[in-house]
Nucleic acid binder design. Structure first.
Lengths: 257, 257
DNA sequence: GTGTGGGACTTGTCATCACATGTTCGATCG
DNA sequence: CGATCGAACATGTGATGACAAGTCCCACAC
């Protein structure tokens, strides 16, 4: 027992509390869109803190695109971005629940095999290295929504063999095994449904699908998961915000071929 | 002449200089991927500054996904994110140039008409309000890449009638008219090519296209542009990064219908 | 009525100090 | 020789003080 504090109840720091409170006020309309955010000194008084935490909290809201402003003028609320934590973004199950939908899944296969060419490149593996592949059909309200082809590096994927992958979220299971995913990179394009997609999603071959290819890394920066997810259009969309203040979240690329 | 400092050469602040220097060292290999970033106190000595600017600079690099680390350990370089400013992201022309491709365009129509239902909703307009619609085919290296259907609110779009939209970037032109776009929200899905898409892109009707619907706002938060861009798959992809530190840049949505 | 100060206010930036908490690594003990 | 403990070091968080630079608004002159 090296740690007397269970990982769940770390006290939130001051700037987190201030940010939470402002987000709540924006979400429930006490700070409507267009309203002026209280000045820094005002917030210092309200929360009885110094300017440091207040500025840190405002900086967070600014990076999220919720507030905007310039030097000399108090920031204004420019939009209430529907917040979605990385956890709820990576976990289809948790995301579906928070969206008021019933998630479901049908695991087609869990296999240990040599890594595919795409995954090998982004995971930094050799073509002779082994990975754990998972092929799942994901459901929303009992209707097919997405086909998921995921490759895990071996020392992460080994946790999946003692796990009933029809029972819930792989993400949550890995987290309980001590694997914490901390960053993800997503690439979007459109592809026609192949025969597997078509059969699982119950559409015709060639139907347009939205493809999200994802590389997920640990906090140490090591990529451990590569996924090729194909969504039925109309069932799910992805939304991204970017501002001049945080310009690097989205980039457009020409693939190399 | 109220301002003695021309807007072009504002002296860069300390944290900007530090961030620039670190980015340069990462870009040219002096700090390769996997290397440990100098500790904060070390950077304080090197630049002869206090911890504030150093932390601000590191925080910026962290938000960009270039470095990663946790409390107690020095950060490590995890990747050199291809930087793409909002300017170069919004402007197809500028983006293509920076990617080493030759941009081109063929304007099909520029028209003033009543706003469409989709655009009206996100631009906050009434269905009887007028907008300026632009329909353009965009080329990369003289081959069709994207069909762009854009609606501008009237007081922005009026600048487009005295502009040869085949000659270059609307974004640059608007900027010269004093219209500064500061934030954008993008929604991605996949759609089959309709007859207009098919004719312009020279593909068959029903071919999968990657659709980006975009709402662009001024720094004051007023949405002024709505665009429905349809990309030929394989020619262009979009990539998004998110981390636990900046989790809100991407969200997944179920459309309402 | 209109235009122009100018002062009060606000944010941006930076220094310095202090403490809590997590990491790393070598010395030491078994 | 390996496991373990602890000191040194690193980052996270926060308080306080200071000045520069931009914005806002009202009083005042024309």
């Amino acid at each position: 027992m090296t740690s007397p504090t269970p990982s769940g109840d770390r006290p939130r720091s001051l700037h987190q509390k201030i940010g939470d409170e402002l987000r709540a006020q924006i979400a429930d309309g006490r700070l409507p869109i267009g309203a002026a955010v209280p000045s820094e000194s005002e917030l210092c008084r309200q929360f009885s803190v110094s300017r440091g935490p207040v500025r840190q909290a405002l900086s967070g809201l600014r990076a999220e695109g919720i507030i905007a402003g310039s030097q000399g003028a108090t920031a204004r609320v420019v939009g209430s971005v529907p917040t979605q934590s990385l956890t709820s973004f990576l976990s289809f199950t948790e995301w579906a629940h928070s969206s008021g939908r019933q998630p479901g899944q049908h695991t087609v296969e869990v296999a240990k095999r040599t890594v595919g060419a795409d995954a090998a490149g982004v995971l930094g593996l050799d073509l002779s290295d082994l990975v754990v592949d998972v092929l799942r059909l994901r459901l929303l309200d009992e209707e097919p929504a997405m086909v998921e082809r995921t490759s895990f590096v071996l020392d992460v994927g080994r946790h999946l063999f003692d796990f009933d992958s029809d029972s819930g979220s792989i993400f949550v299971h890995l987290s309980s095994c001590g694997v914490e995913l901390a960053a993800a990179r997503h690439t979007f394009d459109a592809v026609p449904a192949d025969d597997v997609d078509a059969r699982l999603l119950d559409v015709e071959i060639g139907t347009p699908l939205l493809r999200e290819r994802r590389v997920t890394s640990t906090s140490a920066g090591r990529p451990v998961e590569y996924s090729d997810d194909r969504y039925l259009p109309g069932r799910v969309t992805f939304t991204v915000s970017n501002t001049v203040a945080a310009p690097h979240s989205v980039i457009r690329l020409v693939p190399d071929d």
